[in-house]
Simulated scan of single mutants.
Amino acid sequence: MAELSSILNGHQQRAGATPLPSVLIATRHGESAANVEFQLAEATGALTVPITCRDADIALSMHGQAQAQALGRWWAALPPGDRPRAVWCSPYVRTAETARIALAQAAGLGAVPVGLTVRYDERLRDRELGILEMLTAAAIEKRYPEEAARRRKMGELYYRPPGGESWADVALRVRDCLRDLCVEEAGQPVLLVAHDNVVLMVRYVLDRLSEEQLLALDAVRNCSVGVWRAGYDRLVPELWNETGHLDT
């Protein structure tokens, strides 16, 4: 795990130390209605999915709600000192629902401090896909073959669809968000609820992965958890893409 001093621009908690949360937990939202539809479309080769709302308004599936409840039970089972005392969340519906359900589940088990509220931060929103939004892989190849070819040439980290963002663009706003989070939540455990690419970029930034290392990672699973613990001037990884709590 690389040091965070360059990420945090020299903010100091005490002489020679960088402010850090005691524990940072990053999770992807539970399964969404769009996740279900895209899985079906990819399996059948369909070019369209029956999603008409904005990406920001896509809700959790019933299974996704159950996953968020399982996340809340996992939260409640943490050692008291590791239980989140702050929640930073993407403002999209599926992430907000995940945070709300997990928080309510943990609170019902007596594991949430009085007054804890969810902080929504636009920098944690999902990657914007521009003209490719809500298109299946088959549809992109058929309707925008030149973009499919450019994507293959540029690679996932640097390919930016027209009107959208590259992974590197998302990493820039994740760095900025982490800078604020580390200063404002120094010394306490924090839960970050976001999207697959955002959580992936958290790992990329904190671990200073190379492009090759990043692309070798598996997709971030719904309601999986990544955990980092504070050391001296750094957050040390303990878990990544863990989903064992979803089987209980």
Rank of each mutant, 00 (worst) to 15 (best):
D180Y: 07
G10S: 04
V183P: 14
V227K: 12
A70Q: 12
A106G: 06
P161S: 02
V199D: 07
A138P: 03
Y92W: 14
A219H: 14
H63P: 10
P80N: 02
P161K: 14
T44V: 15
V183N: 04
R229Q: 09
L78S: 03
P79G: 04
M1F: 06
L60S: 10
L129A: 08
H195C: 10
P80A: 09
I7H: 04
A219C: 13
M1L: 01
E97H: 08
L214T: 00
W75I: 05
E147H: 07
G244N: 13
R14A: 10
V225F: 13
R160K: 06
L116M: 10
R229S: 13
K142Q: 08
V205H: 10
Q188C: 15
C53L: 06
H245M: 04
Y120K: 01
A41T: 03
Y232A: 14
Y144H: 11
L157M: 10
E133L: 09
L191P: 03
D57F: 02
H29T: 10
D82H: 10
P91W: 01
L103G: 04
L60R: 15
L206Y: 09
G81K: 08
R160S: 01
R83V: 11
V199F: 08
S5L: 11
T136V: 12
P189F: 11
R179A: 04
E3W: 04
P84W: 07
A219M: 13
I140V: 11
M154T: 11
L181G: 03
M1V: 09
R73E: 04
A34F: 07
D247T: 11
C89S: 03
T243M: 03
R179T: 15
L103I: 08
Y232D: 11
E37W: 07
L235T: 07
Q69G: 08
D55P: 02
Q213F: 00
Y120P: 00
T243H: 08
D196W: 11
A168G: 13
Q188S: 10
W88P: 01
H195L: 15
L181N: 00
R28Q: 12
L172A: 14
V118T: 10
R125E: 12
D247F: 11
G187C: 01
G163A: 00
A138T: 13
R160G: 00
R85L: 09
L40D: 15
P145Q: 14
G108C: 05
L192A: 02
R150K: 12
V118A: 02
Q65Y: 03
A70L: 14
A33S: 05
E211C: 04
I58E: 05
R234H: 05
P50V: 05
R83N: 09
V23A: 06
L217Q: 08
G108Q: 04
A43V: 14
V227A: 07
D196F: 13
K153E: 12
Y159N: 06
H29Q: 09
